[in-house]
Nucleic acid binder design. Structure first.
Length: 519
RNA sequence: GGCCCCAUCGUCUAGCGGUCCAGGACACCGGCCUUUCACGCCGGUAACACGGGUUCGAGUCCCGUUGGGGUCACCA
């Protein structure tokens, strides 16, 4: 049975790099009919674990990354919170001690520090002298008589090599002698990350440890712990980093503000901010950020677009296939087609994927996504009536490609605003209504025609317009811009005839009257 | 600094010794379409880091150099 796991620590938000790792773990498990486990890395005992975890769980769920065991769902290998598994770790430490692969160490941090500095000064590799190592009760008693306290350290081999067969990197070799006698348990009895990790992976029967490359250097000590405990070890696969835009540096959750200075990021944030403002969404500059998954959910991105983009960040099927449904990703995903080099995150390309998925979305789903935005902006009532839904669908259809994310529907607020509340863009009014000398006259004449029109469909309106410009001996541009500003208040918008048809005759006439009064 | 990893267009990538004067996508730059915007269409600029090998033949294998990244905690 293939079992993979994702082990986030509760940081309060789901980071793009983290999701990519989770996604690869999940895809691999799903591809092979295995299981995906979520384990919470909260060994540093923060107080608000649940609060800090909620955005992570909801983010994964939103993306469709579900877990077979973990928080909310439980499972046979629980608990799935490391803070609740201390007993397993201390038992492992005892076992390591018993087998002679670990020892109690009574050195103070200052003493260790001195040894390290001495090594640096002499330009040699630092290796702990084990001067304060106590392997017998007598030695322990002697150190304790001095008032010293013990931590437990790994008794690492001082010769030989570890040969690791990484599923992505291939064969990687490490000299044991360069490894330190890492601490695995503090004086207060609490255990450290690496020990906990290995113990849990074994207890949860993880078959494949798929994680970011930063853990590659940590692998030897983990293998040592596992082997010393007699564990059967999992296979390792170290993923390349998701890097900063235009760089190879790891995307970090501590540099959110810095990324906002990136041009493409700034443009995306600006786009998001426009939507957030329209729906009265409070945004903190730190967290309303394209590095955080929730940003995308809030402004109406499609989870499948993000999954598609992220999957291609370090993995590819061939030289041309890019557009994937999640089911296709599951069908084709494999570790041996994962790249080794870091891939930098490109917001522009993510947007391109979003665009493609959005355009492929059935109208009903698009509408279901758009309606909540209109409601939050106060443009339509909370349970939307059938007539309102029909109007939303009409607007979405007419808008077509112009809707990049669901929140973009708010760019077309004029279709949901009462006529007397329509806001006229001053620049547009000046340019299209006041400045052209013939605008008022033409608009007045056209208004009369519209009032008399038999039907009010895009087709009939287009016919009406053609007849009008022919009779007036004008170019269509001479009237259509004025008309647009008159009925929408803006210089840009949807196709003119669709716009008129959706608004309907009454609103069109009322708005033209309002506009004429403005001039 | 030690150790480890990595290296094809600006970016994501294809390429697993010859079919590559290197293919696709995003971005960018032109042009077309056009009632605005968006889309669409057509075209274009643009890469095998460098140096040695191996081989009849190297983007593809080996070594080195350079560059980039990661890691060296009683953090996770």
């Amino acid at each position: 049975m293939i079992r993979t796991r994702f082990a986030p620590s509760p940081t309060g938000y789901l980071h793009i790099g983290g999701v990519r790792t989770a996604l690869f773990c999940w895809l691999f498990a799903r591809r092979h009919g295995g299981q995906f486990i979520l384990r919470i890395d909260d060994t540093d005992q923060q107080r608000n674990v649940q609060e800090a975890l909620a955005p992570i769980l909801s983010g994964l769920k939103w993306l469709g990354i579900d877990w077979d065991e973990g928080p909310d769902v439980g499972g046979p290998k629980g608990p799935y919170y490391q803070s609740k598994r201390a007993g397993f770790y201390t038992a492992a430490v005892e076992e390591l001690l018993k087998r002679g692969f670990a020892y109690r160490d009574y050195a103070t941090t200052e003493e260790i520090q001195d040894e390290r500095e001495a090594a640096v000064a002499e330009k040699r590799d630092y290796v702990y002298s084990r001067r304060w190592m106590a392997e017998t009760p007598e030695q322990q008693a002697a150190f304790e008589a001095e008032g010293r306290q013990a931590v437990v350290r790994l008794k690492m081999p001082r010769e030989g090599q570890l040969v690791l067969d990484d599923l992505i990197r291939g064969r990687v070799e490490f000299d044991w002698a360069r490894e330190q006698d890492h601490v695995i348990q503090r004086a207060d009895g609490s255990c450290l990350y690496h020990l906990a990790n290995v113990v849990d992976d074994r207890a949860m029967e993880i078959s494949h440890v798929i994680r970011a490359e930063e853990h590659l250097s940590n692998t030897p000590r983990q293998v040592f712990i596992g082997q010393s405990l007699g564990y059967e070890m999992p296979q390792y696969a170290h993923l390349p980093f998701v890097a900063e835009p235009g760089s190879k540096t790891k995307l970090s959750k501590r540099k959110l503000t810095k990324y906002l200075k990136n041009r493409d990021f700034a443009a995306l944030v600006e786009h998001g901010q426009r939507i957030a403002d329209a729906i009265g969404l409070e945004t903190s500059p730190e967290e309303f950020n394209p590095v955080i998954v929730d940003f995308y959910r809030q402004i109406g991105f499609l989870p499948e677009a993000i999954v598609n983009y992220l999957a291609l960040l370090g993995w590819s099927l061939d030289d041309r296939t890019e557009h994937f449904q999640v089911s296709e990703l599951i069908e084709h995903f494999s570790l041996d087609r994962v790249t080794k080099a870091a891939a930098s995150f490109d917001p522009k390309k993510l947007e391109a994927f979003q665009d493609r998925h959005m355009q492929a979305l059935p109208l009903a789903r698009k509408s279901a996504m758009a309606i909540p935005f209109l409601q939050r902006a106060g443009l339509i009532a909370a349970p939307a009536g059938a007539d309102v839904e029909a109007r939303v669908e009409a607007v979405l259809t007419a808008a077509g490609d112009r809707i990049k994310v669901a929140g973009d529907v708010l760019d077309f607020a004029e279709f949901f605003t009462p006529d007397d509340e329509l806001v006229y863009d001053e620049n547009a009014v000046e340019k299209r209504l006041r400045k052209p000398p013939e605008a008022v006259e033409l608009l007045t004449k056209l208004r009369a025609r519209l009032a008399d029109a038999d039907t009010f469909t895009p087709e009939s309106l287009e016919g009406l317009m053609h007849a009008f410009i022919e009779q007036e001996q004008i170019q269509v541009g001479q009237i259509i811009h004025a008309l647009r500003v008159a009925v929408t208040g803006k210089g840009v918008g949807l196709g003119m005839f669709e716009t008129l048809a959706i608004l309907g005759r009454e609103h069109v006439l009322t708005r033209i009257d309002r506009a004429l009064a403005l001039v």
